[in-house]
């Protein structure tokens, strides 16, 4: 992340995303697959680290093995001519400055966390009135002899983070076409150098 100043003098926090070049590795259509989709691949990968079936799949598209393969359903018709097998999809083909995009990624893992961090519980509220060791506890998790069990889905402590998260409406502030870089406002899920899916 970095920050830039917008035209009206505001300091905007922003994230730099390398958006391409993505290679089209498969084009699905209604006749053969039952739905329309385009499969894109991004990031170089060593051939010795790629499973044999995937090497074959990339060979079919005429490219080197790639790290990440994502399918986009109902890819916009305006790119129809450009989405042939083995062709590159680059950042400024799809995105324009001022567009609003959604970013999907895997959030940072937080480990085993209590209910206050995990579900936003308020904790017990105060430190007085006899409290001494339960400030961040969940409190009651249900009634007594009826139902004499804890309901399914009761929010409790546990593994936090590492979920698929979608952030909506990030504004594209700038595009660097020669490097396929996208500068979007705000933050995206996940650690640095992780993969995100951008949707328009």
């Amino acid at each position: 992340m970095t920050s830039i100043f917008s035209a009206d003098g505001r300091n905007v926090a922003c994230t730099l995303i390398e958006a391409g070049p993505c290679v089209v590795t498969q084009v699905k259509n209604v006749d053969t697959d039952g739905y329309n989709a385009v499969q894109l691949a991004f990031g170089e990968r060593k051939e010795k680290n790629t499973p044999k079936p995937l090497i074959g799949h990339f060979k079919k598209a005429g490219t080197t093995p790639k790290q990440k393969v994502v399918e986009f359903r109902d890819f916009r018709i305006e790119f129809e001519g450009q989405v042939d097998l083995g062709k590159d999809v680059i950042a400024d083909q799809v995105f324009q400055e001022g567009d609003f995009v959604d970013a999907i990624g895997t959030s940072k893992g937080k480990g085993f966390q209590g209910v206050v961090k995990r579900h936003g519980f308020g904790g017990v509220g105060g430190q007085t009135h006899g409290q001494h060791n339960r400030q961040r506890h969940p409190g009651s998790i249900g009634a007594c002899s009826w139902p004499s069990r804890v309901f399914k889905g009761m929010r409790m402590a546990g593994r936090t983070g590492g979920d698929r998260v979608k952030i909506l409406n990030l504004k594209v502030l700038k595009i660097y076409p020669e490097k396929n870089l996208l500068l979007v406002s705000g933050s995206v899920p996940g650690p640095k150098n992780s993969f995100v899916i951008l949707e328009k």
Binding site: L16, K179, N193
Partner: peptide
């Protein structure tokens, strides 16, 4: 700093 971020920050040098 990552090499890519330098692309952005270079403009404000």
């Amino acid at each position: 700093m990552s090499e890519l971020l330098k692309v952005v920050e270079e403009e404000y040098k």
